[in-house]
Design a protein around this nucleic acid. Structure first.
Lengths: 226, 226
DNA sequence: AAAACCGTTAAGCAAAAGTTAAGATATTTC
DNA sequence: GAAATATCTTAACTTTTGCTTAACGGTTTT
């Protein structure tokens, strides 16, 4: 697939130019005009790489980078920086920047850098499946972590398995019997009650994001809504 | 120790300035005044990185780069180029340049790029030699030393192997079974307990940095967090 | 209104993991 | 090659964790 790039740049002229240029080079680009919008976009979709202007309204590029790294530790980031900002550059680098580009941007240079960074990161990253729930939550099945903005909850095995099934059928009905068969092996009274207990726990965790909830369909099953 | 840089630059003023500046930043620099001398120097000593001017007498930077890559395929190279040379730049990149700098050289930028390139290339060469853990700790796998600001702990073989695996998957799940298979050869009760003992020791060492910890995922494995 | 269903909290218990120390092995030193 | 030392394993005990069951209350269906 074509790599997806998050571009956070407040200057309309530069932003539009970059977006157009990148799209000409077979990238999918989401262009956001300030740091906060950038963060929101990042939470909604999944990107392969981020290009962040350092000086932006609402939230600067360094802070944004920190936020993004919280959600996805290995997301590659390229900063855009004005010629003047010598000292800050190094700080940003140490925070986990993969590269940076000095304005005015040389488009060909940018493409080369993007390809270099993608080549680098895509090789080493093992495919990890992460479910997004609502705007705030990420669920990493592999490590059983439910990650929000400021907190991380480690789920138990049963909780995680349950949440995985819910995520697989997000906004659709997940049948009770399917769950019981899959996670408990059979469908008796006690297993049903046990599942209810786990469901209660999941609901408690998911309260972090108010727009997320587990809806019960009486006698049928559950729907994870977001 | 301090990274060794081969600098190939014919301009005496720029060459002297760069050599001095780089040495001020804890690099060892060999400055050669043309392409052929650069090649000779490269054959005599071993370098961590090369900075090559593109336009040089006897042998240009691109050709020299090709020669050096013949000897050491993974040697990192940064080109120095005049602003005018837009087209050639990309060619150089494709030939295996790791980065380039446009003249007149911004010294701080150069340092940042050097460090980026070194970090990048050193990371790629698995097994990586020095792992950073948290803000305070460095773990040198070769010498099995865990180094903090004011103290150094020499780990045992098993401890070091274990910490290496944790570092390779920092902030990701490291599966218990993988560890046991890799370091003990099989997965029985006693080996599991033995691993627990080693894990306890590592935790004790890592207490030096409060933001570092080894998180257990019940029944699955461990996550080294920093 | 009875019966089945569901939500929630807490108690109980078994398994997993943390910790410390003692025993067993390997390695080094003299 | 024996003593000293370092390292790893086994043991024993403690703490934590996770799943189930129980208990009680609310909701939905018939």
């Amino acid at each position: 697939m074509h790599p997806k790039i998050l571009l956070a740049e407040d200057d309309p002229t530069l932003g539009y130019a970059l977006k157009t240029y990148l799209e000409m080079h077979q990238f999918q680009v989401s262009w956001e005009k300030d740091g906060e919008l950038g963060k929101e976009a990042f939470l909604k979709e999944s990107f392969d790489l981020c290009i962040l202007d350092i000086m932006m309204p609402k939230m600067d590029g360094f802070t944004l980078a920190g936020e993004l790294k919280k959600v996805n530790h290995s997301i590659p980031i390229i900063f855009l920086t004005a010629k003047a900002m010598k000292i800050d550059k190094l700080q940003g680098f140490q925070k986990g920047a993969d590269d940076y580009i000095i304005k005015p941007v040389d488009e060909e240079e940018l493409i080369a850098r993007i390809q270099a960074v993608l080549r680098r990161t895509q090789n080493q990253n093992s495919p990890q499946l992460i479910y997004k729930i609502g705007k705030l939550l990420r669920f990493d099945w592999e490590s059983r972590r439910l990650v929000a903005d400021n907190e991380t909850i480690v789920l138990t095995e049963k909780e995680a398995s349950l949440l995985r099934l819910l995520c697989e059928k997000k906004n659709q009905l997940l049948d009770r019997k399917v769950v019981l068969q899959e996670l408990w092996g059979n469908v008796d009274y006690f297993n049903r009650r046990s599942m209810d207990v786990h469901m209660a726990k999941l609901r408690k965790y998911l309260k972090i994001d108010p727009e997320v909830n587990i809806l019960n369909i009486h006698g049928k099953g559950y729907i994870l809504e977001d």
